[in-house]
Structure formats: structure tokens, C-alpha cells
């Protein structure tokens, strides 16, 4: 009879040959020790980077919070800004401008990005370049260009009236939102097979409007929300264009408050920061909700 097969008898091969390099009582080799040490060093390095980043971002916030709370009596800066009618009206103005910006940029960007992806993919680099122009052209140039083009002598003298200036402001904000909105929409379109979906809709009798409204837009929900909240955050914090157009927006109000009320300005800065964060959290919550919906239903 031959030697029993360890696999059949259940005898561990390790038992016959002695413990392996990772078995109990194994002595770690020099190279294993070195790799473990370098792993620890790497982990410490990344924690250090994270800590530096955290301090870089949050120390100024803490400084601002600390300063805003130095007003007497305690918290009076916050109660003062909340009771100031200028705060609500300027914030409301910026929010309305932001929402209008979002609606208009969706109406411009979604059909454009859809059409370019579907019919003229070779134009994508050009469209991308156009949408990136707000990063290259400073807002101050943009606002001067707008005010000069649409002044009282032009065919469309929007710069001469409050309503006209409001229109110009939103138009400028739409341009500023292009990079964020286009990228978000384009990424969303990349994630779905728009050609097949479009052709399937067409073969079922759908026209372009229905395809965009009922098939493409609902599948871009998360992307549109990302673009929308980023645009909103940018509009609420935008200073240059609103100031040069003398619009009662939030950022110019913040600046005016800062001239005479430093504690209130710090409080306002924190509030605007909070609004931005709120927008980000909303994106995350909506994104997470759509994912958890999938999980729940699959389960």
C-alpha cells in the first residue's frame, strides 16, 4: 500500500512539511519586515497629507467662525444678519437668478450636447472649448463686454433698465455655468446609449421633443442635479458681474456689510459657505437615494 493521499485522509500537507512562512510561529523574514514598515510609513504619509489638507480648508473657516462669535452679545452677528431685510432680499435675488440660470442653461445645453453626441460627434472638442471660455475670460471682461454691447445706443438697450440688467445678469450667469453644466450633461449622456434609445423611440413614433423630454432628460437626472447645484453655488457667490451691473445680489451685499460690520460679514461668509455645502449635500443625498432605490428593489 502506498503513502496515503493527504487530500483524501485529511492530513494537512503543512503538518508534514512543517509550518509555512505565514504559519503559526513563523519568523518574519527581513523583506517581510521591510515591506510592513514601508506600508506603515505610506499610511502615515497619507494621513499627514489629509491632515494638512483638512487644516488648509478648515482653519480659515474656524478663524471666521471664531471672529464672527466675538461680537457682543454672543451670536449677535448672526441674529443681526438674519433680522436684516437686505440679507433675505439679496439671498432671494441670487436664488431666483440661480434658478433662472439653471433652467436656461439646461434648455441650451441638453439639446446641444444631445445633438452633438448623436449627429456631430466630431464637433465635441469645439463645443467643449466654447463651454470652457468662462474659465479663460475674466468676469470683469465679460461684464464690460455685455454693458458696452447692450448700452443705450445699441438696438437692444438692456443696460438702461433694471429689468434689462437683470436679463443681462442671468445671461452672464448662464455663460458662467456652461463649463459645469455641459460637463455634467455630457458625462450623463456618455453613460447612456443615446443612439439606441433615440432610434427605439423614433421607431415607436416619438418626435424629437418627446425623445428629449421623456427619454433623455429623465436619464440625466443625477447629472443635471450636479450641474444645477454647482451653478447655483456659483451664482450665489458671484460678485464681480453683479457689482458692475449694480444688481442687489448676495455677494455685493456681503461686501457692503463688510465695510461697516466686520462680525456680520464673517457670519454672512459662513452662511454663504453653508449654502454651498447644503447644495453639495443635496447632490450626495439625491445620488445616494437613487442608488439605494436600486438596492432596495433588487433585494
Amino acid at each position: 500500500m502506498g503513502r496515503p493521499n493527504p487530500a483524501i485522509t485529511g492530513t494537512a500537507i503543512e503538518g508534514e512539511l512543517g509550518p509555512g512562512p505565514h504559519g503559526p510561529g513563523a519568523v518574519p523574514s527581513n523583506s517581510a519586515r521591510r515591506s510592513r514598515r514601508s506600508r506603515y510609513a505610506g499610511r502615515i504619509f497619507w494621513w499627514l497629507i489629509f491632515l494638512i489638507g483638512f487644516l488648509y480648508f478648515f482653519l480659515p473657516l474656524y478663524g471666521t467662525l471664531d471672529f464672527s462669535l466675538k461680537s457682543k452679545p454672543f451670536g449677535s452677528a448672526y441674529t443681526a444678519i438674519l433680522s436684516d431685510s437686505g440679507f433675505v432680499s439679496s439671498l432671494g435675488y441670487s436664488f431666483v437668478a440661480g434658478i433662472l440660470t439653471i433652467i436656461i442653461s439646461i434648455l441650451i445645453i441638453v439639446p446641444t450636447a444631445f445633438w452633438v453626441r448623436l449627429k456631430y460627434p466630431q464637433l465635441r472638442p469645439f463645443i467643449e472649448f466654447i463651454t470652457l471660455l468662462p474659465f479663460v475670460i475674466p468676469p470683469v471682461i465679460l461684464v464690460y463686454g455685455l454693458l458696452n454691447t447692450y448700452n443705450g445706443k445699441s438696438l437692444l438697450p438692456l443696460g438702461d433698465s433694471d429689468t434689462g440688467l437683470n436679463v443681462l445678469l442671468v445671461a452672464a450667469y448662464v455663460v458662467l455655468s456652461f463649463p459645469y453644466m455641459y460637463r455634467a450633461v455630457d458625462t450623463g449622456l456618455r453613460a447612456i446609449d443615446i443612439q439606441s434609445l433615440t432610434e427605439a423611440s423614433q421607431s415607436l413614433g416619438a418626435g424629437w421633443g418627446r425623445i428629449l423630454w421623456q427619454v433623455i432628460l429623465p436619464n440625466l437626472r443625477t447629472s443635471l442635479l450636479s450641474g444645477a447645484f454647482l451653478s447655483l453655488a456659483i451664482v450665489v457667490g458671484e460678485f464681480t458681474i453683479a457689482t458692475f451691473m449694480s444688481r442687489p445680489a448676495f455677494a455685493p451685499y456681503l461686501n457692503i456689510v463688510g465695510d461697516s460690520k466686520p462680525y456680520e460679514q464673517a457670519a454672512l461668509a459662513l452662511v454663504s459657505f453653508g449654502i454651498t455645502w447644503l447644495a453639495m449635500i443635496l447632490i450626495a443625498v439625491i445620488g445616494r437615494n437613487s442608488r439605494s432605490q436600486i438596492k432596495v428593489t433588487l433585494g
Partner: peptide, 20 residues
């Protein structure tokens, strides 16, 4: 005729069901 005027049904390799 445009595709949406033909009354021709089509089934695609990628299914092309509307995800929403």
C-alpha cells in the same frame, strides 16, 4: 419617410429599453 412615420417596429441588439 421619417422613422417615426413608418410604423416599423425595431428590436436592437442592446435591447434599448428606456431605463427610467
Amino acid at each position: 419617410k421619417a422613422p417615426n412615420q413608418r410604423n416599423v417596429g425595431m428590436v436592437f441588439q442592446s435591447y434599448a429599453l428606456f431605463p427610467n
